[in-house]
Simulated scan of single mutants.
Amino acid sequence: MNPKMIIRLFIDVTMTVLMLVAMGYQMTGILAHEVVGVILLVLFIIHNILNRRWYKALLKGKFDLRRILSIMVNLLFLVSMAAVLISSIPISREVLTLIPIKNDMIFMQIHVMTSYWGFIIMAVHIGMSWGTIINAMRRMTGITGSSTVRTFLLRISAVFIVVFGVQTSFERNLGTKLVVYDPFGFLGFDESSITFIMDYLAIMGIYICGTHYAVKFIQKQKQNVQ
């Protein structure tokens, strides 16, 4: 595999893992949360530098439905992450304490809300590229042929993840966190980190699976028209 592709895949996976860690700030503590945020900022900048050709070709070529959706998702992800990072500066308590602000509630609410939106948009972003990711993993593992049994098991797993993710979304009141109704969220004192990670991976799975199959449907419709 192309070394640059391996680096991109590594950075993307690392960013996804760190995003999950950042979402669990009540478990990690403020210092670890802010350090993870700084690392995410650095990786986000590197990610955009490695994908700078995408920006150069933004207004070139044909604009079919899939490309329009891809551009919208990427730009929304960029805006949400920028909002998360900018709003984190005035509320920092450990790492970035250069701009102390007394009335920082509005920044806290913006930070939390855009974090959850960024988390969901990130999952959609991954779903848009899921086919490419799977192909890259196949090349890395040497799996080239197709398997009916493997495909069936993967689809059953996808259904299970989506059902569990929808249930978890309601249990964690994810909808309220997207409108700043519950800015601080809630985490039970007896909750384990494994439970937290599994729940949020399932929530990610909703949007990854949904986006992936939506993209496949769009591509199939395009082929039928042609």
Rank of each mutant, 00 (worst) to 15 (best):
L31C: 03
S87M: 05
V38L: 13
S192N: 10
I101V: 15
I6L: 11
F217I: 06
Y213H: 11
Y25H: 12
L187Y: 07
L98M: 14
A83L: 14
H111M: 07
G205L: 11
I46Y: 01
D12M: 08
L178I: 07
R139L: 09
R52C: 07
F44E: 05
Q219S: 13
H111K: 11
T195D: 13
I143F: 15
M23N: 04
L40V: 02
M19C: 09
N224I: 15
K56F: 10
R150E: 03
R66E: 03
S147N: 15
N135K: 15
T176I: 08
Q221W: 10
W54S: 08
S115K: 13
Q226Y: 15
H47E: 08
N135L: 12
L78C: 03
F63P: 02
R8E: 06
R66Q: 05
L96A: 13
F10C: 08
I126K: 04
I46F: 06
L9Q: 12
L174N: 04
Y116G: 06
I39N: 02
L174Y: 01
I7V: 14
E94N: 07
I110G: 09
F184R: 13
M81F: 02
M15D: 03
M15G: 01
D104F: 08
I120N: 00
W54M: 09
D12E: 08
I156Q: 08
I71K: 05
T211Y: 07
K56W: 11
R67S: 02
R138C: 08
A57N: 13
Q223P: 03
L153F: 13
E34I: 06
F10L: 10
L154K: 11
I71E: 01
V149N: 09
G175S: 11
W130R: 01
I203V: 10
V73E: 00
R52N: 09
M108H: 15
V84S: 00
P90N: 05
I49V: 11
I126C: 02
I45P: 00
P90C: 04
V13T: 11
P183L: 02
M23Y: 11
R172G: 01
S169E: 11
I86E: 02
D12A: 11
S193D: 06
M128D: 01
I194M: 12
M122G: 00
F44D: 04
R8G: 06
M122K: 00
I99G: 05
N224G: 07
M81W: 00
V159L: 14
E171G: 12
F189Q: 11
A83W: 12
V162Q: 09
Y213W: 15
I86A: 05
L20V: 07
V163G: 09
V166M: 08
D182R: 15
I101P: 00
L18K: 01
V180G: 05
M198C: 06
D182P: 02
G188D: 07
L85F: 13
T28W: 08
K222A: 12
M105W: 10
V36W: 01
D182Q: 14
I161Y: 06
I39H: 01
A202T: 04
A214I: 07
I218P: 00
D190Q: 11
P183V: 04
L20Q: 10
T97N: 13
P3F: 13
K62D: 04
F184T: 12
M5Q: 13
M198L: 11
I218M: 14
